[in-house]
């Protein structure tokens, strides 16, 4: 356990260093304007570390004041993270007005369903309630990012490298956090140190992915392509669908005919 604690401290120091590098890189490459909420997220994450460090130093690790400070800063970071993920979704789809209107409702809907479901499935007794809220939020973020990837794949919307890597970083970390919270909930005490350490490692991995993503200066969102007139979609989309429907019916006939013959 003592070894894990010293490793954890080293990982914490490295995490703070890398987080600082990420903030500086965002400023140096002027990407803080293009990814404003991601910059806010990185900054709140960076500031959380000294605030927690000070609170642990003054009130001790197990004090209720430190506990409250931890969850208060965690709520701030979670809000910044949610906005950063929303910003990535917006950056990818904003130029495509029609599918963006469909997309944001889908992401929000999926995230809300997952949030509520995870909340219901998880326990409701304190301190599990805070853990459960944290896990539900992480899961909702993971599902929203996955939906974004599936959505862009379906509509063949180009996914720029920088937001793509940012989204990958968020997805990996959110998956690990869900696992982390789940394991922490089941074996709250005995493995807490180990899982805290693994959580820090997962965050380090995400930080490296984000630093990689922010290496080049990202272009601001390109001007929107001229959209097609609305009636084109209204007239062609049902025509294509009815054709697909008839094609399916024919395949059904084909299959039935075969059944009769064999």
């Amino acid at each position: 356990m003592a070894e894990i604690a010293s490793l954890e401290r080293a990982a914490w120091a490295l995490m703070t260093l890398l987080n600082g590098c990420l903030v500086l890189l965002l400023l140096y490459r002027r990407n803080h304007r293009n990814f404003f909420f991601f910059f806010v997220y990185a900054l709140t994450n960076l500031l959380q570390a000294p605030v927690l460090f000070e609170s642990y130093r003054i009130w001790g690790f197990n004090s209720s004041v430190s506990f409250k400070i931890f969850w208060a800063t965690q709520a701030l970071v979670a809000a910044a993270r949610t906005l950063a993920v929303a910003e990535i979704c917006w950056r990818i789809l904003a130029n495509y007005r029609g599918i963006w209107a469909l997309g944001w409702r889908l992401f929000l809907g999926m995230a809300a369903v997952v949030l509520v479901h995870a909340w219901v499935i998880g326990g409701h007794n304190w301190p599990v309630v805070a853990l459960n809220a944290d896990r539900s939020l992480w899961l909702a973020i993971g599902v929203a990012i996955l939906t974004l990837f599936l959505f862009t794949q379906h509509f063949e919307v180009p996914f720029e490298p920088a937001p793509r890597f940012l989204a990958i970083g968020f997805f990996l970390y959110s998956c690990f956090q869900v696992l982390n919270d789940t394991v922490a909930e089941r074996w709250l005490k005995p493995y807490a140190a180990l899982w805290d350490f693994l959580g820090t490692l997962a965050f380090l991995a995400s930080l490296l992915v984000w630093i990689w993503a922010m290496r080049p200066t990202e272009q601001p969102v390109a001007s929107a392509p001229e959209l097609l007139p609305e009636h084109l979609y209204r007239s062609l989309s049902p025509a294509i669908n009815s054709r697909l429907k008839a094609l399916n019916e024919q395949l059904g006939h084909f299959w039935h005919a075969e059944g009769k013959k064999t």
Binding site: I99, V157, L228, Y233
Partner: peptide, 16 residues
């Protein structure tokens, strides 16, 4: 056919 439909959808101001 599906790809054409997707492109039309992605460049439409409104999607059903």
């Amino acid at each position: 056919l599906v790809r054409t439909a997707k492109v039309i959808a992605s460049l439409s101001p409104k999607v059903a």
